[in-house]
Design a binder for these strands. Structure first.
Lengths: 202, 202
DNA sequence: GGCTCCATGTAAGGAGTTACATGATTCA
DNA sequence: TGAATCATGTAACTCCTTACATGGAGCC
């Protein structure tokens, strides 16, 4: 119950949420949950999760009891009363900027598209579409944590994930069409013209 | 031209891209670009950008020339030949995971929705929708950097931003409807029943 | 007995946030 | 001359990544 920041970090909040949604789980189990999340970019390294759990314990938000019937250092984590209130507060602590767009590595790169040749752009878009489609396919097989005591939220979130990836796919399709419209595939004629487009820099 | 990582970080890549898209710009100007980006979550702190620029200079990707007609320490940054190749390589270095969903703070919180009361959930969704709508409205006024030498990519990216936020808005609408369908607004009758739903934990 | 998981930790190094600190330029 | 803005940097702190390190449990 040490001094702590005004509010939880995203990782701490998510870890607290996972423990809560399982009623009890080990730190190792928390990591498994993060690993199996369809959302890429969740830090699921030991070096991030164990310290985060430790902090939650220090704050008094999580109780760690040595697991009986296991001579290992295995600890069973549970959310305390205080922790449950902290989780609720973190949840309700929406900030205005959160309504805006997230950082999307595919989109970041598109900003500087004009450095690429037409062929490179096409190849980029094809790669991106393939990756997005793969993510969507994986999503088909995804079932939210069956061990959670209530999966309304997990279900709801997975709908959001699907919509986000579908939006990305739609966007990539628009870009592909845009590119094709601007550079009609001149059939076997004058290939030199196309490949110079977009390479303003040597 | 010091030893460096195998590939650029997202921040380094984006900084390199900004410098390239302006042909030349100061580090301060790069920061202004990040600040005016409609994508939230871009680190735009001095403490992140100046060191990133320094690294790019060390790698030989960016040239820094003291600006004439300015007795301050102002340096004009330009992308070198090597840097332009590095930018192209970073751009084309798409990885598979990038097709997946990004970390969205609104969505993260929804995962643990079952800790909230019905009223709290409704309030959360209303807040989130308001924030997303505000982000969309700001996007209307947004024009990609007019000083860029080619804005195809910037334009294309801003379309993606719009689609992402619209998808978020659509998703939040679905959740709101879902919530209302499950808990029909019992008109002035038995308010106690509703407020207990979703609070399985004390 | 050996392999695969389960389970927890630590240490080095890199990077971002925030706050501190300084000074030039421009415009009214 | 004063205020706002342009412009750069540094230092403390925290956090994450990656790799290293250890050992029990369960199963064949």
């Amino acid at each position: 119950m040490t001094r702590r920041r005004a509010s939880l970090t995203e990782l701490e909040g998510a870890v607290l949420g996972v423990i809560w949604s399982r009623r009890s789980i080990t730190a190792y189990g928390v990591r498994q949950r993060f690993l199996s999340s369809p959302t890429r970019g969740w830090s699921s390294s030991h070096g991030a999760i164990y310290p985060a759990v430790e902090r939650l314990i220090r704050y008094g938000f999580v109780a760690a009891d040595p697991a009986r019937s296991d001579r290992r250092a295995t600890k069973t984590l549970t959310v305390t009363q205080v922790g449950s209130e902290a989780l609720r507060q973190w949840l309700m602590g929406l900030e205005e900027w959160m309504g805006g767009a997230t950082v999307d590595p595919i989109r970041t790169r598109v900003n500087y598209f004009s450095i690429l040749s037409l062929e490179e752009r096409k190849s980029y878009l094809a790669d991106a579409e393939r990756n997005a489609r793969a993510a969507l396919a994986e999503l088909q097989d995804f079932t939210p944590d069956p061990a959670a005591h209530d999966s309304w939220g997990l279900e709801a979130a997975s709908v959001g994930i699907r919509l986000e990836v579908e939006a990305r796919l739609k966007w990539l399709g628009i870009l592909r069409e845009r590119l094709e419209a601007e550079n009609p595939a001149a059939p076997e004629s004058d290939p030199g013209q196309c490949s110079s487009i977009g390479r303003t820099e040597a």
